Measured scan of single mutants.
Amino acid sequence: GNAVQEIMIPASKAGLVIGKGGETIKQLQERAGVKMVMIQDGPQNTGADKPLRITGDPYKVQQAKEMVLELIRD
């Protein structure tokens, strides 16, 4: 079955996860074999953390989460 996890991405790092024209998030999805969606909560909310929703095989979702956390670590 499918697992769904959401991680909060600091607004300052959201661009890093998505990448230029969505390149990075696309590569992450391909590498991890999961679906990732950045939940954009309207323009008034630009400074707030953005939830990144990861959907897929539970094991792969976990892997994907680690990859993203690695990416946004300072």
Rank of each mutant, 00 (worst) to 15 (best):
V17Q: 01
R31L: 05
S12N: 13
T24Y: 06
Q62W: 06
N2L: 15
T55P: 00
L69E: 14
I9A: 00
M8A: 05
V61S: 02
L28I: 11
G15R: 10
K35P: 02
A11W: 04
R53Y: 05
D41M: 07
V68S: 02
A48W: 05
K65D: 02
D57W: 02
V61D: 00
Q63G: 09
P10V: 00
M38R: 02
Q29G: 05
K35R: 13
D74C: 05
I54Q: 00
L52F: 05
V61G: 01
Q63V: 10
A32D: 02
T24P: 04
T46W: 05
A14L: 15
G42Y: 15
Q62F: 06
D74N: 06
D57V: 07
I54H: 00
A32W: 09
N2G: 15
N2Q: 15
D74W: 03
T24C: 09
N2H: 03
A3M: 15
K35I: 05
A48Q: 14
A48L: 11
D49K: 07
L71A: 06
V61Y: 00
M36L: 08
E6Q: 14
I9W: 00
G1W: 02
G42N: 09
L52Y: 01
R31Q: 14
K60W: 03
I7K: 01
G42V: 08
P10A: 02
L71K: 13
P58S: 09
L16S: 06
L71M: 11
G56N: 01
S12I: 11
K60N: 14
P51L: 09
K50H: 10
P43T: 06
V61I: 07
V4E: 15
A32G: 08
P58V: 11
E23G: 14
I54P: 00
V37H: 04
D41H: 10
G47S: 13
V37E: 13
D57F: 03
A48F: 12
E30W: 07
G47R: 07
I18M: 08
Q27C: 08
Q44K: 15
V17S: 02
G15V: 11
R53V: 12
G22Q: 08
I72L: 14
M67Q: 08
K20D: 15
M67D: 08
E70I: 02
G1Y: 08
V34T: 03
S12C: 05
R53T: 13
L28M: 14
P10Q: 02
G19H: 02
L16K: 13
A32F: 15
Y59I: 15
V61M: 03
E70A: 10
G1H: 04
G19P: 01
P58C: 06
D57L: 06
K13P: 01
D49P: 12
G33N: 09
V68K: 02
I7S: 00
V37P: 01
G15C: 15
I18F: 14
E6V: 11
P51V: 13
E30S: 13
M8H: 06
A32E: 04
A14F: 12
N45E: 11
I18L: 13
P43M: 12
K20G: 06
K13R: 04
D57M: 05
P51A: 12
I18N: 08
D49E: 12
I39G: 11
I39K: 13
T55M: 13
G21M: 11
E6S: 04
A14T: 15
D49A: 11
V61L: 03
K65G: 07
P10T: 02
Q27P: 02
E23H: 15
A3K: 15
I25Q: 03
V34E: 01
Q5L: 11
G19T: 02
P10H: 02
I39Q: 11
M8R: 08
P58R: 13
A32C: 13
L71Q: 07
R73F: 04
G19L: 01
G56D: 01
P51M: 14
E70S: 06
A11H: 05
L16M: 12
Q40M: 07
R73V: 10
G42M: 07
P51Y: 09
V37I: 10
I39H: 07
T24D: 04
T24W: 04
D74F: 03
D74M: 04
D57T: 11
G15K: 14
L16Y: 10
K50L: 14
N45Y: 07
A32L: 12
P43N: 05
P58D: 14
A14K: 08
R73M: 13
N2S: 15
L71H: 06
Y59E: 14
A48S: 10
G33P: 01
Y59H: 15
T55D: 06
G33R: 06
V4P: 02
K26V: 05
G15I: 11
N2Y: 05
P43K: 15
E6I: 06
Q63C: 14
L28Q: 01
Y59S: 13
Q40W: 07
K65C: 06
L16H: 05
E6G: 03
D57P: 12
Q44E: 09
M8P: 07
E66P: 02
T46F: 07
D41A: 08
N45A: 12
N45D: 14
I9G: 00
D57H: 11
E23W: 07
Y59A: 14
I7G: 00
G21W: 04
K60P: 04
R53M: 11
I39A: 10
D41F: 04
N45M: 09
G22I: 02
V61W: 00
G22V: 03
I54F: 04
T46A: 08
A11K: 12
S12G: 13
N2R: 14
G47E: 10
R73D: 15
E70K: 13
G47K: 15
K13M: 06
R53Q: 12
Q27T: 07
D41C: 11
I39T: 07
R31N: 08
Q44F: 07
E66T: 11
T46K: 08
P10Y: 00
V4Y: 12
K13E: 05
G56F: 00
G42C: 10
K35D: 08
P43E: 12
G42P: 09
T55I: 11
A14N: 09
I39P: 09
A3V: 14
E30D: 11
T46C: 09
L28H: 02
A3S: 15
L28D: 01
I39E: 13
I39S: 12
Q63I: 11
K65E: 06
I54C: 02
D74A: 07
P43H: 13
R31W: 04
L28K: 01
G42Q: 11
A48P: 10
A32Q: 08
E66S: 10
